[in-house]
């Protein structure tokens, strides 16, 4: 039982840290603001959330698990909101997409108005 718990904890910790690492690599490699937001808001969020759950499972206590799950839900539900706000703010203040972007229907519709 102990070994099972330890294995689950180890799996969560390692996969969480690898997700966070991939997010940081994406943050440095992606060409523009909006693509970087993908990396930070998805892979980064999932990485830290997995590590939070690992604490709850490692403790093997329902109260602590409930608390870590509360933190998990809070973090997962707020990350898209902040990413969306940032994307909206930076698009509205005119930061352009990178040159390799295929299309920008939002800009076109604003120009028509």
């Amino acid at each position: 039982m102990d070994i099972l718990l330890a294995l689950v904890t180890a799996l969560l910790v390692l996969s969480g840290s690898i997700f966070a690492f991939a997010a940081a690599v994406g943050l440095n490699r992606f060409p523009d603001l909006y693509a970087r937001m993908h990396a930070a808001s998805k892979a980064g969020t999932v990485g830290s959330a997995l590590m939070l759950i690992a604490v709850g499972i490692h403790a093997a206590d329902l109260a602590i698990l409930a608390r870590s799950l509360a933190g998990f839900f809070f973090f997962v539900l707020t990350a898209p909101v902040s990413a969306h706000l940032l994307a909206k703010a930076s698009h509205e203040s005119g930061y352009p997409l990178s040159d390799i972007s295929v299309q920008d229907e939002m800009k076109r519709s604003q120009a028509e108005i």
């Binding site: 991939a22 693509a35 698009h91 972007s101 800009k107």
Partner: peptide, 17 residues
């Protein structure tokens, strides 16, 4: 996204629809 970020050649076509 993780696979995309870690893949050796970055071939993405970002855009807004």
């Amino acid at each position: 996204v993780a696979v995309m970020a870690l893949s050796p050649n970055l071939k993405i076509k970002p855009g807004i629809f």
